[in-house]
Design a protein around this nucleic acid. Sequence first.
DNA 1: CTGTTAGCGCGTTCAC
DNA 2: GTGAACGCGCTAACAG
Lengths: 364, 364
Amino acid sequence: MPRVVTIRTVAERAGCSIATVSRVINGSARTSAEVEARVRAAIEELGFRPSEIGRSLKTLRARTLGVVIPSLTNPVFAASVAGMEAEARRRHHTLLLTATDYDAAREPEVVETLVAQSVAGLVLTVTDADDNPTLDRLDAEGIAYVLIYNEPRRTERAAVSVDNAGATFALAKAMIAAGHRRVIYVAGRFATSDRARTRYLGYLAAMSEAGLAAEAPLELDYLADPAGHGAALAGVFGPPGRPTAALCSNDLLALSVMAALRALGLKVPQDVSVAGFDGIALAGAAYPSLATVDTPTRRMGERAVEKIFELLDGSAAPTLERLPFELRPGGTLAPAPDASPVASARRPDAASPSFPASPEPPSE
Amino acid sequence: MPRVVTIRTVAERAGCSIATVSRVINGSARTSAEVEARVRAAIEELGFRPSEIGRSLKTLRARTLGVVIPSLTNPVFAASVAGMEAEARRRHHTLLLTATDYDAAREPEVVETLVAQSVAGLVLTVTDADDNPTLDRLDAEGIAYVLIYNEPRRTERAAVSVDNAGATFALAKAMIAAGHRRVIYVAGRFATSDRARTRYLGYLAAMSEAGLAAEAPLELDYLADPAGHGAALAGVFGPPGRPTAALCSNDLLALSVMAALRALGLKVPQDVSVAGFDGIALAGAAYPSLATVDTPTRRMGERAVEKIFELLDGSAAPTLERLPFELRPGGTLAPAPDASPVASARRPDAASPSFPASPEPPSE
DNA sequence: CTGTTAGCGCGTTCAC
DNA sequence: GTGAACGCGCTAACAG
């Protein structure tokens, strides 16, 4: 079905040239009120919508933004994409959405696809933001992009993130303050998430500062059947002297870990305290509510899109930008069993331990 | 920054015409092995990627699919979009994603935007699939689209859904079988979801069949602060003789209702049983796990995209297609307090009432 | 203020 | 088997 009504149809109907029609549509130059009225009427009557394709071919830039995320199934990414969509729409752009399923090998191809569509810019979360040929290629070609959730060490890369290590440091300190001595860090596969690795560093710093022995991290694959988690967790939480707290690299994982611990007959938080990272909406609806790091997920998506446009119009250089986070108390984090809290005041409400008022970053 | 390497650059490098390059890329006609090799080498060396814009302008059809959903924040839609994305990628298409935030007034504009992009087809969830000028316009212009989650009465509209009324009927029956007499239906705003309305009919049928009085539905706005739910629920669950079960129009709402009930000092399921609809992943991670209707969310997205292509290549006519659902037992649905189950066998496991083996649709 | 015209990158006749 | 030429829908540069 060929396009029935084009700018030419409108021009004929309005009795003018296509250039004039274009001017009316884009307000790119003044036109007489009379002609403009005729053109608008023609557009209305014909139900004409200018083709974005035609415009893009001329402009060499589509009014679209490419988005690359690991998975929509994780509410963190769903929320940030929702923010991107709202902000993009505000600027008359549409999102081209792709997912890599946490597979680094898929990154180059989806970016190729997006670039072939002549997107105005890209927002992406990659498995590794520092050692990444795909990003190198974007740099080389001068294509605007903003990372989200990644926290590149190469700070000349534009990114919107949080202080992953600092937040985890603060969260681990809160666990330690609650009397936990054996705290284990549970992560999705490190290989597919530099966030998980960076957060682990925060955990290490907190344990070290408290003079506690860090445990080897437990890597789970949270794409696999959650049943698989049970076996792995049984190995760690089965033997005596088990950890009394599990610090998880993200909320989705934490909720899965909670279910697995319960299946093992362990009570949360009486036997094991649990905490997550991200602050997804459903963490608050869980019971007990999940202690976590609240990150501005939706706002990060909006901010990433704003940043793309700043890069495009040259009003800002690419920088790493960390948005504020907040520790969110939750019933899953309670004082350690048979352990009197070290110093500090007594905690009247075991279900809601108070966190330090402001996050404390690790000393660097 | 103009496009540096076009099909023309490749042609020069390979020492042939652009027509030949095009033929090699698309395999649209035979070329000599020698020339083909030169062309492929040139493409490789130059890192050439054909512009989708140029191709689309010629074809008058972009290799993109427009998606219109109420909100990405609801995991149901996030999961189905994930399915669409995977299936679209399999077919070398990309998704153009838009959200309406449950605002019917936004439907026409986002669809306009998508159509202006010359999408190959559309997948959408609308507030009302029967009385909908936007869909009428798509019909009139012969643009391929598939509804998802909507269940239009006008069955000549292509749709991928579940038996909303039948599933709710079965779920309500299970509640009644557990001894509940006062069951209240809790919905998001009916005005913004024909699913909520259709599901309500299933509830009514079950109550009627059991000779029970249906309650007026309780409409909550689950975009608003969940704190607002507390007040509304207090009005219903405060007075004596309160309902012993809440049948919620979707899982997200059900989880929110559970939290609100707890805040009111009511225990789930000891005081009030709760059930949802959709079968989002986190419903299983909740504690107690949420009793719900398990719908194939991701598969529905995949199926919708498959269907678009069937419509495009004329291999199938638009039809309403209902995918199978399953009742998922959960700890939130327990026998009614101080009520001995009517007839039926005793339930050994109060936390996991057994559902009827197969869903029973309402008699029509 | 308006019209004419030249492409943007590509696919596709139509000759050769 | 290959190339020249046209046009998809639109914007922008230039004439008038």
